[in-house]
Amino acid sequence: MPAPVIATQNLVKSYPVKNSKDFVAVDGISFEVAPGESFGLLGPNGAGKSTTMRMIGAVSTRTSGDLDVLGLDPNRYGPEIRSQLGVVPQENNLDLELKVRENLLVYGRYFGLPRARVARRADELLEFAQLADKAGAKVDDLSGGMKRRLTIARALINDPRILLLDEPTTGLDPQARHILWDRLFRLKEQGTTLLLTTHYMDEAEQLCDRLVVVDKGRIMAEGSPADLIRRYSSREVLEVRFGSTQNAEVADRIQSFGGSGFGERVDVLPDRILVYSESGENELERMTAAGLHPITSLVRRSSLEDVFLRLTGRNLIE
């Protein structure tokens, strides 16, 4: 295996809290990202994803542990590491006082690139981000998805070896998300290493070759999306609803049915019951045969959401 471009070992970040113990936002995280890989941090709000990204982006000093980005230690080689990164932060920080294209021009200069080269690259990137016709527009007049694409274009101005994306599509409508995913796919195809955080399981499934599931600053599991689903869930999930009044009562029967309950495992949520199984249809038939008639039923493939639920007992988006 080629040398990893990012390697963390027991990475910790804690923040001081007045009159109290330090708050540990990242609590001993270890993972490695190979060149060209698309690697994800999947976890709910407050899991410590952004904090981890900032440490890797060499703008936040780690409290302890080892961190190695492109073989360099961020404590010593901050500007050098950042010269090789493209960063899409969770909150956009485009300059609203400048026009769309100008944002790329000033940013390119921050890497010491000659003006002519930055100008050429800016035009290419506006094309890539499908913003060529907005070059002279005010940033504030762009839609959320366009702003995000502009931020990605800005992050690419120095031809980075690694692109860090912190929740790239949070807050965007489905169509805008798909346009963005398409752009990120292209980068992936071109061999750019992507490190991204998300709390959307579909985004992780779409974009990540490999990911870690993070909760409360710790890694709960690591693997490819398919891997994780195989390891922590079943092939299919049957979702049944019996109405809020019936749910709890029926849940007992489903969980204890035939001794071990339906399927491989049953999860009871406030509004519905999940039955994990190789075949959801079979379980539904057995259920009906046993005289249980859900108001609605749905059979779907298992997802990372189920993995997260299994690992933490909670949903990704609360």
Partner: peptide
Amino acid sequence: TLAAAVAAAARTRRYGSWYVAEH
């Protein structure tokens, strides 16, 4: 990698303040 990164950041280490002024 170190050599490449050092070269890429060298101009910014030296002239970074002027790039900010330009902005």
